[in-house]
Amino acid sequence: MANWKVTLLRPDEEHGFSSFQDGVFLLFFFPGWWFLMSYKDYIKWERMPSTWCPGCGIGIVLKYAAMAIDELKIPKEDVVVVSGIGCSGRSAGYFDVESLHGLHGRALAMAEGVKRGNRKLKVVVISGDGDLLGIGGNHLLHTSRRNVEMCVICINNEIYGMTGGQMSPTTKKGTVTLTSPEGSPYNPVNAQGLITSNKDHFYARSSVFHLNHLKKSIQEGISRGGFSFIEVISYCIENNGRRLGFKDAPEMLDLIRKNYKVNPSPAGKLGDLELGIVKT
C-alpha cells in the first residue's frame, strides 16, 4: 500500500527521487482513493530479490515503468506487460499485473495479439535490444508501421547479457565481445531511423541515469494512443563492463551521465548522444 515515507529532497530537472512522488505530494494534492496506491502495488515483491546481477540497469527501468503507470492512474486490471527473452525479458514476471513472457523476438507479435484481442487493455512491452532489434527486427518494422497502440520499452545495454556477452545489433563499432574478439566490425542498428521512417511515429531515447526523463518518456509513450518506442540506454556490468575494463556499475552509470545530454526540444532527429522525444 502507500509509501508513507516523506522525503525532503525535491527532484531536480533530470534526476528524480522516487519517494517524493508517492509521498506527501500525492497525499495532499490529489484527493480520492488513488493516494492509497503507489508504484509498489504494481510489483510482485514476494518474487524479490530479482534474477538480475547486482548493479544491473534493468531494475531501474522496472521501477520507473511501474511509477509511470501508477502516476497515469491506470488501474491494475487494465495493464498487461509483455516481454520477450533475455535478461530484460524476465521483467514481465515481476509486475503484479497480468503478464506474458513469450518467445525470443516475438514479444511484439504477441503484444499485438493481446491488444487486438481486447482493446481496453494497455499493453506495455519491456524487452532488450537483441530481442526487439535483432531477432525480432521484422516484427518491430511491421508493428510500428501498423501503429498498434502499445508502449515498447527497449532496454539497450549494447550486449547479449544473458548468454554471456555476445555482440548485439546495437554494439558500437570496435567493441570487443565474445563474438567479436577483434572488435565489432559493424555499425550499430539505427533504431531512431527505423521508427521515425514511419509517417506516424513516437520515438524516445532515455537512460537509466536520467530518471525523470525516463519516467516522462514512458508516460508520454503509454498515453500516446499509438505505437511508441522508448530506447533506454542501460548497461551490463557483469557480462560486458568488466571485459571492457570497468571496475563496477557506478562507473558505467557515470559514463552515461557524462556522455548523454537531454535535448528537451529536438529539431528533427536526436543526435547520437542526445536524449529526448521525437514524435509526430
Partner: peptide
C-alpha cells in the same frame, strides 16, 4: 472478426497466442 494479415507466419502464430490469452478463440 478481428483479422490480421501479418508480416510472416511466426508473427501470426505468436499473435494468436496473445489474442487467445486475451479472451478470443483464435
Amino acid at each position: 472478426i478481428e483479422f490480421v494479415h501479418t508480416e510472416d507466419e511466426i508473427a501470426a502464430a505468436n499473435m494468436i497466442v496473445g489474442s487467445s490469452l486475451s479472451g478470443r478463440k483464435s
